[in-house]
């Protein structure tokens, strides 16, 4: 069985993602469409929140991916720091804008959901607040990447920022919860028995989650390929200059 580290080789990665990316992209489109159409049009209205509740099919998957994208960046940064695989650093770079967009979707849908329930577009609810803080961390990470010219220096510095930022993002999350009492409803999906959400909702929600995960994966693959091509161009230019 081939080792996963083989994909640390840019050429191997390009070769594999050549056929993987279209597949993932199509799967993402199909699964997300199925999940959202099922969720929006083939589920009953909630007895308390009416049809407003259906925004959950956008809100929860995007919020989930907003956090997962950061965790993926953290893992990729660690791999770069420890094993110095360049594809890993470039994947972390490619994941950041995707994570930023996911966070923005989670914030916007959260505000849209909150408006009829709370009567206002924005409430400093601890969960919305921690997503807003996460948004700021994404901005800082992307800004640092874009302001460093040398790619290896950029990879090193952003990796350290990602590690330190993860700790502070976690602390900020606890601070946000400490800071105010929650207005948010409890965790939307519970692992405990006596689930609060009916299967009629859960099935399309799970499908949407998978769909968003696939969208994220497709974006990361696409972004990483772009970054690898940019590096290749740079390498060719360097060789040109030396000869």
């Amino acid at each position: 069985m081939a080792s996963v580290w083989e994909y640390a080789n840019p050429r191997k990665f390009m070769h594999t993602s050549d056929w993987l990316l279209p597949g993932v992209a199509w799967a993402a489109a199909v699964v997300t469409t199925v999940g959202l159409v099922w969720g929006f049009f083939f589920t009953p209205d909630d007895f308390r929140q009416g049809s407003t509740v259906k925004i959950v099919f956008l809100h929860v998957p995007s919020a989930l991916m907003a956090i997962n994208a950061w965790i993926m960046m953290l893992v990729a940064s660690l791999i770069w720091v420890i094993r110095r695989h360049h594809v890993s650093a470039l994947a972390a770079k490619a994941a950041a804008p995707a994570g930023l967009v996911m966070t923005a979707i989670a914030l916007i849908t959260g505000a849209l959901w909150g408006q009829p329930i709370w009567g206002t577009w924005w409430v400093w609810d601890p969960r919305l607040t921690s997503f807003l803080i996460l948004f700021l961390f994404y901005l800082g990470y992307i800004a640092l990447w874009s302001s460093i010219e040398d790619p290896d220096t950029g990879a090193d510095l952003t990796a350290v920022l990602c590690l330190v930022g993860s700790v502070f993002a976690l602390l900020s999350r606890y601070a946000a919860f400490f800071w105010t009492q929650g207005l948010h409803q409890g965790a939307s999906l519970s692992l405990q028995p006596g689930t609060r959400m009916d299967w009629a909702y859960k099935a399309p929600l799970y499908i949407s989650m998978v769909g968003f995960g696939l969208i994220f994966l497709a974006l990361v693959l696409l972004g990483t390929r772009t970054e690898i091509r940019a590096r290749r161009m740079k390498a060719l230019l360097t060789r040109e200059r030396m000869n």
Binding site: T238, R239, M242, N243
Partner: peptide, 18 residues
Amino acid sequence: KAQRAGAGGADSFDEAFL
């Protein structure tokens, strides 16, 4: 003078693309 990227046993990442 280094003749081209990665010469002299340097394991330059950019070589992986060339």
